[in-house]
């Protein structure tokens, strides 16, 4: 994200802020979705994140990258919603209907296959701790490096490494048991 755009948005230019939103909203949505597991919740996270980003632009000092800064807010808000949601309903996780797997396949069989996959994905997601989900989402969905994940989550690189390894062990084990 260009400094100039950030400066303009900071000065109240709504067009510049919209450009920031358009550039980052998809990735924030993707990461949030993998952490909270429900489309409605992920949409709420995106909304809260960008209202918060707008309000806090004046405090962004450029010490971390803008991307890392936005992701940090996104992860914190996602974890928050996840905790709140777990309380309300004993975590009935659902992956998106259509949103993620919309690929033009419309026959009943295709639809069924997509739904089966969604259920499988949510079941696997649910096996992971929120921290593991956050790490995997930042790594696989957002494509951040270990260094960037460590900065985003404010933990050291070895913690990132361990969380990713544990998450994958859990996923591999679950898949092996299913077979």
């Amino acid at each position: 994200m260009e400094r100039e755009t950030i400066e303009k948005a900071r000065a109240g230019d709504m067009g510049a802020f919209e450009a920031i939103y358009r550039e980052h909203a998809g990735m924030v949505f993707g990461v949030a979705l993998r952490i909270v597991g429900r489309v409605e919740d992920a949409e709420e996270v995106v909304q809260d994140v960008f209202v918060s980003v707008h309000r806090s632009l004046g405090h962004f000092q450029g010490k971390s990258s803008f991307k890392t800064w936005v992701y940090r807010i996104a992860v914190n808000m996602s974890l928050n919603i996840l905790r709140r949601g777990r309380l309300a309903r004993q975590s009935e996780l659902r992956m998106p209907e259509g949103a993620e797997f919309e690929d033009g396949r419309n026959t009943f069989e295709d639809r069924l296959a997509v739904e089966e996959r969604e259920v499988r994905v949510s079941e696997l997601l649910e096996l992971l701790s929120p921290d593991q989900r956050a790490c995997m989402a930042l790594r696989v969905s957002a494509g951040l490096s270990y260094e960037e994940i460590a900065q985003t989550l404010n933990v050291n690189i070895n913690t990132v490494r361990t969380r990713l390894r544990r998450a994958r062990e859990v996923l591999l084990k679950a898949r092996a048991q299913r077979r």
């Binding site: 939103y21 909203a25 998809g26 995106v46 960008f50 993620e100 919309e102 995997m136 994958r168």
Partner: peptide, 24 residues
Amino acid sequence: LGQAVFGGAVSNPPERVWLAVRER
């Protein structure tokens, strides 16, 4: 397995999310 659970195409949130952000 990582791709199956965490990968996939990145879709943008629906337009109503931006409208709500702007409104707020």
